[in-house]
């Protein structure tokens, strides 16, 4: 169980940057009063960011992942979260096995 000094420096740097991003929104938002387009842009933050994180896996990895993502979307429209995850994982396993 060893910790290399440079590795520790990298982890601490990542941690500091990450906490800065986590607290910054709480500090800055108090000055914002949003309406119209700005409000619409703000409301779009949640889906825009989540989609951006997973789009490469869903669209630019392979047809199995893309098809599994489509199956997962159908599941998400009618099933609870954990069942959706289970359907998605089973779909990708089945499709990769079929390939």
């Amino acid at each position: 169980m060893s910790v290399d000094p440079t590795t520790l420096a990298a982890i601490v740097a990542m941690a500091v940057v990450t906490y800065a991003t986590r607290i910054a929104g709480f500090l800055l938002a108090d000055r914002l009063v949003l309406r119209g387009r700005a409000k619409a842009a703000f409301d779009a933050i949640p889906p825009a960011v989540l989609v951006a994180v997973i789009a490469p896996t869903a669209l630019a990895t392979g047809w199995q992942e893309t098809l599994a993502a489509a199956v997962t979307i159908l599941a998400a429209l009618r099933l609870p979260l954990l069942a959706t995850v289970a359907v998605g994982v089973l779909a990708v396993v089945a499709l990769r096995a079929a390939a």
Binding site: P47, L50, V51, V53, I54, T57, A58, E65, A68, A69, T72, I73, A75, A76, L81, T84, V85, V87, G88, V89, V92
Partner: peptide, 11 residues
């Protein structure tokens, strides 16, 4: 793929 499926559910 669990990460992707989870995010689809959240979206």
């Amino acid at each position: 793929f669990a990460f992707t499926a989870l995010f689809i559910g959240l979206i």
